[in-house]
Simulated scan of single mutants.
Amino acid sequence: MTPNRHILCIGSALWDTIGRHEQVMEAGQDRPGRIRRVPGGVALNIAMALARLGMAPQVLTVLGTDAEGDTLAAACARRGVDLALALRRADLPTDAYMAVEGANGLIAAIADAHSLEAAGDAILAPLEDGRLGSPAFPYGGTIALDGNLTAALLGVIAASPLFAAADLRIAPASPGKADRLTAFLAGGRGTLYVNREEANLLSGCNAPDAGGAARALLKAGAERCIVTDGIGEAVDLSATNCYRATPPLVEPRRVTGAGDTLMAVHIAAELQGMGRGEALAHATQSAARYVAGEDIS
């Protein structure tokens, strides 16, 4: 496992149950469609996409010792995702996510990440006990961090010496959890991957486009941010550089996991040597293909 291929993903790993109706759908409607159950969760979605891109992802999370946890661990192994250091707890059920999608996007979703929240900092033990790092020799690779962790734990991570040497890449789990990332603004740590709504919630602004939302995030303390805006322009902004890319228009076939796919492709592209502008364009194009139903590899 070479250093530039090994990526640590920290956060949710669970079962996604996704129902999709192929026409426009509104809340409260009952429509025919397809229901599928697949491995998911922000950290695991990122890890699975990274594995498809030839990277070597390892996930720190919590799984129950129930049947759902066993089958999820087996499914991850088949997909090239390393869960050997994941915490297994007999007293916690494996987490779950449920969503309804239509041709007009996500209609509604519920994320049950209570076990991840209950496990707390216990999932981080390999970063402290020598398996991946220690206080004297902190982990120095890339870490993809998932906002499904509690605000308190994310605050600890933002200030912890265990993460001081890492290349931190951070994503909220949803707009409803975006405010959990405020510690990374206060500390000016890491690269934030957010959509325009999430960026505005974090900064307290109401920017009409990704560029304005990114500028507000930097003003609020962000070190670097990747801000997307659906079919609109995406922006990669830091104090010294700004890059922009517009995704191609596609007919949407799926929504859940698109942001995680963009983040994974972008991380892999940069680690494989692409420049920032090229990596952003490549990631937005790949995410569009994912939304169109194509496989990303």
Rank of each mutant, 00 (worst) to 15 (best):
R196H: 04
T240F: 06
C242M: 05
R253L: 12
A222I: 08
K219H: 07
C225M: 00
L217I: 04
L181A: 09
R196K: 13
R244F: 01
P252K: 06
L201Q: 08
T246P: 04
V194C: 08
R244T: 02
S238H: 09
L237I: 06
G212R: 04
A216D: 07
A222D: 05
G176T: 13
A210G: 05
D229G: 10
G259F: 06
V194D: 03
L202K: 00
A210P: 01
R196G: 04
L202V: 11
P248G: 07
V235C: 01
R224H: 11
K219E: 15
C225N: 02
A234M: 13
E233C: 07
R244E: 00
L192Y: 11
A214F: 00
E223A: 15
G190A: 14
T182N: 06
A222H: 03
T256P: 05
S174R: 11
A210F: 00
R244N: 01
A222G: 03
G188D: 05
T191R: 10
V250P: 08
P247L: 12
G204I: 09
R215M: 13
R224L: 12
S203A: 15
T246I: 13
D260K: 11
G176C: 11
L217A: 03
A220E: 04
N206L: 13
R254E: 00
L181C: 06
V227N: 01
G188M: 09
T191I: 14
G212W: 06
E197Q: 15
D179L: 15
R215A: 15
L201N: 04
L202S: 01
T240S: 14
L185M: 09
V194I: 12
A213I: 01
A210R: 01
L218T: 02
D179N: 14
P248T: 08
G232M: 06
S203C: 02
P208K: 04
S203V: 00
A186F: 06
A216C: 09
C205V: 03
G259L: 05
G259V: 05
A186W: 07
I226Q: 03
C242Q: 12
L217S: 01
D260F: 12
C205N: 10
L181K: 07
V250K: 09
I226D: 05
L218D: 06
E197H: 12
F184E: 10
D260Q: 12
A186K: 12
A178M: 11
G257M: 07
G257V: 02
K177E: 08
F184M: 10
V255Y: 09
A245I: 08
T182D: 14
R224T: 15
T228D: 02
N195R: 10
A214T: 04
A216E: 04
P208L: 08
R180I: 12
R253G: 03
A213D: 10
Y193R: 08
A186N: 11
V250Y: 08
T182Y: 11
L249A: 14
L201I: 15
Y243K: 02
